[in-house]
Structure formats: structure tokens, C-alpha cells
């Protein structure tokens, strides 16, 4: 899966969680909790959706690495890359 595919998946899931916001225009380095006004339940739904869509099981200890779009893409790319290796 390419980085663009991962980005598209991340943006799509954020759009599902916060449909009021335009997920595509989020600053990739902004904190998602502030940018989209999401709480721990929203974040759990985000992680759950990523697991179902991409097969990546993000442990709670890694949650801080997914708090920005940029961080989430980098984390998922690394996980998917290592899964293929």
C-alpha cells in the first residue's frame, strides 16, 4: 500500500468520525484532538476503523504517535512496510 493510499484511508476515517469538519484540509502537523475536537471515544473509533481497514492493530501505548495526520501516516506506513517484509 502506497503512502497516498494510507493518507486517503486516514483522511476518510477522520471524515467519518468528524463529518462536520473537512478532514482533507487538516494541517498534517496539527493535533487531531484540537483540530477536529475529538475525544477518547472518537479516537478509539478512529483506531478501530484503521484496524478494520488496514489490518494494523495500534496498541494504546502507540496512540500518541497517531495524534497528527503526518504521524499517523508515518506510523501506519512503517507498520504495513514491516508487515510485508
Amino acid at each position: 500500500m502506497s503512502e497516498d493510499d494510507i493518507r486517503a484511508a486516514v483522511i476518510a476515517e477522520l471524515g467519518n468520525i468528524a463529518p462536520e469538519a473537512d478532514a482533507a484540509t487538516i494541517n498534517p502537523e496539527s493535533d487531531l484532538r484540537e483540530e477536529l475536537d475529538i475525544d477518547s471515544l472518537d479516537f478509539l473509533n478512529f483506531v478501530t476503523a484503521l484496524h478494520k481497514k488496514l489490518g494494523v492493530n495500534v496498541p494504546e501505548s502507540d496512540y500518541p504517535r497517531l495524534l497528527t495526520v503526518k504521524g499517523a501516516i508515518a506510523y501506519l506506513a512503517a507498520k504495513l512496510g514491516s508487515a510485508r517484509a
Binding site: 477518547s40 471515544l41 478509539l44 483506531v47 478501530t48 484503521l50 484496524h51 478494520k52 492493530n57 495500534v58 496498541p59 494504546e60
Partner: peptide
Amino acid sequence: LAQTNASRLPEQRLLMA
């Protein structure tokens, strides 16, 4: 909570709430 969630998939995890 941390111990319980560590062995669970995201869809099965609990929140402090």
C-alpha cells in the same frame, strides 16, 4: 485498564468512562 486493553483488539477496548 491498561493491562486489560493490552491484550485486546481496538474494537474490544474499554475507556475509563
